[in-house]
Structures are given as structure tokens and as C-alpha cells.
Design a protein around this nucleic acid. Structure first.
Length: 476
RNA sequence: GGCGGCAUAGCCAAGUGGUAAGGCCACGGUCUGCAAAACCGUGUUCACUGGUUCGAUUCCAGUUGCCGCCUCCA
């Protein structure tokens, strides 16, 4: 069974075949660093983290590029994002970018999202963007008006092939005012003339200005990944116009296909409503991390397919966290069993079961990264493992179970929480207390053992007794 | 006005032309000094109305409701 990816370009699931055997070049639209990252970013970058992880699991060498947008993009009210943030916080735009770039990576680390191989900044690639604009002008796909450069969609018959839109059906000025400079309302800016008060501006062949709203992605993607990429990812809301424009300007400039597989993830809602600052339900990742761990948020998001919308609410996350706890418990019990078990041989029924679950998980992941179904298989696997753990298992068998379980839960899905520094320092002492309590129980000193269990519980440690002895875990 | 998406049991959520994975919650049971964890058991139901079919939750048409996008919010 091979990997199939839903390609937005063809609106169908296609077998994944990279342009170069064994190599995958992948680009994902990164954040605009003018404010703290929100849970929409979490869904986006967790979704593509899964893509990267799974491709690597399959043995591909993946080069993953994700930009940092630190040049202004316009807001609904016509203001520049970076500019607005800089004014709000009385900072230089580059300071602002630095603060929120760090906040972004910290949030992603907490969610166990692997860092991209390259995180290029838009402001660090102004010459590349100017060069791309220059090429488009030379080839006749763009025109200059009043020191600004616009892409001429009348020269590009394929405009709309990604989003399925026909330019004439769109309502010009549905949201923003019509720009009178443009020959056609759908023409888009490649380079904009800067007004004197505009903080971020650069020299160009067309005068002082700043890059248009889509060129950075094309310029940086092609610089690091070549003219044709295997995968380009982003949110559905960027399908039009952002990605449509990326295709137009890139393919017009190079004359070759820009992206083979376009992937788009669905949106996040909060308490069944669109998340927006005006509704007051805007949730930053930093805020969410105060209520739930990164692993809980990640697991919750992965229990919905990336192309389905997810409704972010506390009750649902709490419910799914209960489920994650079962998987964490199984992992811990396997680690405990590994210490106690002897005999390196592996039981045939165990290796059969592991092979079976490996096939099942890969089967689900091969179907357009179906993480909810893969997690379903992981729960089945967990239940079977727990059944075996109540009997005697050889060390070889336990090791095989552990290898497979972590390959699925940790390597592919990344949902097992990393041990924190706090946990590492506290663990030996908790072990000690639990050992003392075991002695008390052997003496049938229930009063003291129950007191210890109660106190540990208040401190956030749950003790579980079983035939093989007592174990413990952190409360969630 | 145009383009696109979604509607599955109390809740969350996969999926299929042949009768619903998984998780949460709930209720029984096993185990346990008591618990917890774990394991076992309990779910007739896929928005509505037509159509195609031997058979549809799955395909087609219509209806209703919700959501995203239309010059740049992941």
C-alpha cells in the first residue's frame, strides 16, 4: 500500500510520487510574526508536522521550508500588520518580529512540532523577490504603474486553476476598496510603492517600496527548493487568493509546474464559533497551554482529520485527554515490564500482533494522513498490550511491543509527552515513597499506606496497585 | 451574486453499495484490604424528502441548517 495524498489542485486523492526518488521538497506558509500564535496556528503546523514525520518514517529525505513573514501584510482596515504591531508596542518592526518569532517557536516546541529545516525571513530575501518581479516584467506578465508593479492576470490564462474560480464571477471590492491603479481588479501587487511614513521600505528598480503580498513565498520556496516543489501546504483560507497568486507568478516566471501536491487544512472554531478578536474568543497557544499540556492539545487536534474543521472547547479537550492518558499508561507499563522481564526470546504471537498493527497504522496514515483512524488503531493496540501485560511476557516480547508502540505513538504521531525537567528531578523521590508504601502494605498498615496514597494524590501523583507491585503516574 | 466545505449514536470522531473503527461519559461484571488502573459486557443508528439498486448511512436530485473564501487572518 502506498501513500495517497489529497491534492487540492485536482480535488482527488493521488498516489504520492516525489519528483526525485527518495527526496521530498516541502514548503508551508509560515506565520506573520506581529502577535502571539493562536490555536489556528497549532492546527496548521501540527498537521504538516505529521506529514513531515510520516514521510521521514517512510524513509524519505525531507527538506522542509517554512517562512517567517516579517514584512507587512494588510489588515481589513487597510493597515499594515507589522506596522500596527510596532506602533502598539512602541517597538522597531524588527524587534517585534524577533519577539513573536521566538514566541512562535516556543509554542511549537511545546506542541512537539519539529522545527523546519529552513525558516527564511521575508526581509532577508528582498533581492530574491525583486529579481522575481523583474523576471515577470521582462516576460510581459507584469506592468508598472506609479512606481508599483502588478501581475497582469490577462496574460495568465490559468489563473483560478487551484481555487476553481472565474475572475469575472468575483465581486470586486467585496472587502477592500478597489484599487484604481490596476488594469483589472484581480491583478495583484508584486511590488508596492512606499509612502514616506511607511517604516519598512527598500530600494528597487521602481523606487522606494516594499514587496507585494505573495512574492515572498514564491521567491523563498524556489530559492531553497527549486522551481518545482513536491508539496506546498497551507490553510484553506489561503487557497484563494494567496496560493492562486503564488502559482501564477511562479509558473509565469519559470514556465514549469510550481507545485505537484497542494495540501490545505481546515479551520479551527472556538466553542462552535469562528475564532476572531471581535468575538472575544481569540485563543493564543500560550493561553491554551495554561489549561492543557502541549501533548493534550496536540492529541486533541490529531483526533480530527486535518481536512475537517475542529471545534476547540475545554470539555472536548478534557475528554480526549482522558483517552490520551490510557496510551501514556500503556507506554509506562511497558517500560516497567521491560525492567522486570527476563528471557530475550520473542513470542511468535507477539511478533504477529506487532506486524498486524504496524500494517493497520500505516494503512490509515497512507490514506491521506488519517490520524484519527490511526489513533483508533493505537487504542486497539493499547488494549491488546494491556491484556498481555497482565500475564508473564519475555523481555524480547516486551521490547518488541515497546518498539512498535513508540514507533506509532511517538515517532509518527508525537503524542507521548516528553519528560520534563521537573519530572526527572522528582521521580526518584516518588519512587522511594512508593517503595516505602509497598512495605507498609506488606505489613498491612493500611492507615499509613492510604495516607501516603492520599497525600501523593494531592501532590498530583496517582498510585496504582497491582499483583506485580505498585506503579505511579502524574495526574493529567 | 460566485467558489468551496460540513451535517454519523448523550458528547467527540473515523468510515463503507451489504447493514456503523476508536475515544469520553454512563451502567453492570472480573481483579483489589479498599481504591485506582486494567480487562470483559451493554450502542439499531448515520439532518430531512424523493430517486437509482436485490440492498444506501454510503451513489444521484432536491430541501434545511452551519461554516470558510471572493486581494490576502492558519
Amino acid at each position: 500500500m502506498s501513500l495517497f495524498i489529497y491534492n487540492s489542485l485536482t480535488r482527488s486523492k493521488e498516489k504520492f510520487v516525489p519528483l526525485t526518488k527518495g527526496l521530498v521538497n516541502m514548503y508551508v506558509c509560515g506565520p506573520t510574526v506581529y502577535d502571539f500564535p493562536h490555536i489556528g496556528h497549532a492546527k496548521s503546523y501540527i498537521s504538516f508536522d505529521i506529514v513531515v514525520r510520516y514521510l521521514r518514517y517512510l524513509g524519505y529525505h525531507v527538506r522542509y521550508v517554512q517562512n517567517i513573514t516579517d514584512v507587512g501584510h494588510l489588515l481589513d482596515d487597510g493597515q499594515d500588520r507589522m506596522l500596527k504591531g510596532a506602533q502598539r508596542e512602541q517597538r522597531h518592526p524588527m524587534e517585534l518580529a524577533e519577539v513573536y518569532t521566538r514566541a512562535y517557536f516556543e509554542a511549537m516546541d511545546a506542541l512537539n512540532v519539529l522545527r523546519p529545516d529552513i525558516s527564511p525571513r521575508a526581509t532577508g530575501h528582498i533581492p530574491e523577490q525583486i529579481e522575481l518581479v523583474h523576471t515577470l516584467l521582462e516576460k510581459g506578465y507584469a506592468y508598472v504603474v506609479n512606481d508599483s508593479v502588478y501581475f497582469d492576470i490577462s496574460q495568465w490564462p490559468y489563473y483560478g486553476k487551484l481555487s476553481g474560480r472565474r475572475v469575472d464571477d468575483q465581486q470586486a471590492g467585496a472587502r477592500l476598496e478597489i484599487n484604481e491603479e490596476k488594469r483589472h481588479p484581480a491583478d495583484f501587487a508584486l511590488w508596492k510603492k512606499a509612502e514616506p511614513q511607511h517604516i519598512m521600505q527598500w530600494n528597487s528598480p521602481w523606487g522606494r517600496g516594499y514587496p507585494g503580498w505573495h512574492v515572498e513565498c514564491s521567491a523563498m520556496a524556489m530559492k531553497y527548493l527549486g522551481e518545482s516543489l513536491d508539496i506546498h501546504g497551507g490553510g484553506m483560507e489561503n487557497q484563494f487568493p494567496h496560493h492562486e497568486c503564488e502559482i501564477a507568478q511562479s509558473e509565469a516566471a519559470t514556465g514549469t509546474q510550481f507545485v505537484k501536491y497542494w495540501m490545505h487544512h481546515n479551520m479551527v472554531m472556538v466553542d462552535s464559533q469562528k475564532m476572531s478578536k471581535s468575538l472575544g474568543n481569540f485563543t493564543s497557544i500560550q493561553q491554551a497551554l495554561k489549561r492543557f499540556s502541549g501533548a493534550h492539545i496536540r492529541f486533541f487536534i490529531l483526533q480530527t482529520h486535518y481536512r475537517s474543521p475542529v471545534d476547540f472547547n475545554d470539555d472536548s479537550i478534557a475528554a480526549s485527554s482522558q483517552g490520551l492518558q490510557r496510551l501514556i499508561t500503556t507506554n509506562k507499563e511497558l517500560l516497567r515490564a521491560l525492567e522486570n522481564a527476563r528471557d530475550e526470546t520473542t513470542a511468535p504471537e507477539i511478533s504477529d500482533m506487532c506486524a498486524d498493527y504496524k500494517a493497520r497504522v500505516e494503512n490509515e496514515m497512507n490514506d491521506d494522513f488519517n490520524t484519527p483512524a490511526a489513533i483508533g488503531q493505537l487504542f486497539n493496540f493499547s488494549r491488546d498490550i494491556n491484556s498481555y501485560l497482565s500475564r508473564d511476557l519475555s523481555k524480547g516480547s516486551v521490547k518488541m511491543l515497546l518498539d512498535h508502540f513508540t514507533a506509532h505513538a511517538d515517532v509518527i504521531l508525537g503524542i507521548l509527552p516528553k519528560d520534563t525537567a521537573k519530572a526527572v528531578s522528582a521521580e526518584p523521590f516518588i519512587d522511594l515513597l512508593v517503595r516505602v508504601r509497598s512495605d507498609l502494605r506488606e505489613q498491612k498498615n493500611w492507615r499509613m499506606s492510604d495516607m501516603l496514597r492520599g497525600q501523593l494524590s494531592e501532590l498530583g501523583v496517582v498510585v496504582n496497585d497491582s499483583k506485580g507491585g505498585s506503579s505511579w503516574s502524574y495526574k493529567t
